[in-house]
Write a protein that binds this DNA or RNA. Structure first.
Lengths: 100, 100
DNA sequence: CTGGATCCACGCTGATACTG
DNA sequence: CAGTATCAGCGTGGATCCAG
């Protein structure tokens, strides 16, 4: 593994089961936890949280906790996450064109 | 799942354990089975064949069998596979820049 | 409202041995 | 040379229930 490591690294950070769906929605801007959950069909809370945590760890998204009652948490793309936008769009467009 | 399906589809077709490495090499042009095997460290023949077969099924690569003795098989990107080139390069570059 | 904890099944992956 | 067959292991992902 030499330079293809770059591809592998990128694929690993955006390639989780639900990450595409999450990323796709966050491109549109900040979203609450419940908004994400309700806008992604079939995702369980467990999986949503797991994938959000991973992307947070990878520096792709920010987790913003408001010290309120009731609790409110919002997620948004970081600068690093934002730098993926063109790639994400390319991936989406290629997929739409090439699936039957 | 709506439009993010495009991303998911693309990620599924290029996201296998060894597909990045294979694709990366085939960008450089046609290659023989043994060349691929020898140029990808740690890949087993089983995994190499599995991933090649999947990509062939997905129409990303062509498998060219020469009716010779000794046997010779070459792999190359199809037009569909070639249309991934810019995406593959973006993925690689982003990965190289953003891993530490 | 936003998660955490636990338990479990399935699929991908890998090692090894064999073949047209 | 270019694969196929078989079996085993592990991790990812999922259901369900519980909590600050």
């Amino acid at each position: 593994m030499d330079k293809d490591c770059g591809m592998s690294y990128t694929l690993n950070t955006i390639g989780g089961r639900w990450k595409p769906a999450i990323l796709y929605r966050l491109i549109g801007g900040k979203m609450r936890y419940s908004e994400l959950r309700d806008s992604i069909p079939n995702v369980t809370e467990r999986m949503l949280v797991l994938q959000l945590r991973e992307m947070e760890k990878d520096g792709l998204i920010n987790r913003i906790v408001y010290a309120e009652v009731p609790p409110r948490v919002e997620y948004e793309l970081t600068e690093k996450g934002n730098s993926l936008k063109p790639i994400l769009k390319s991936l989406s467009e290629w997929g739409v064109k090439n699936r039957d």
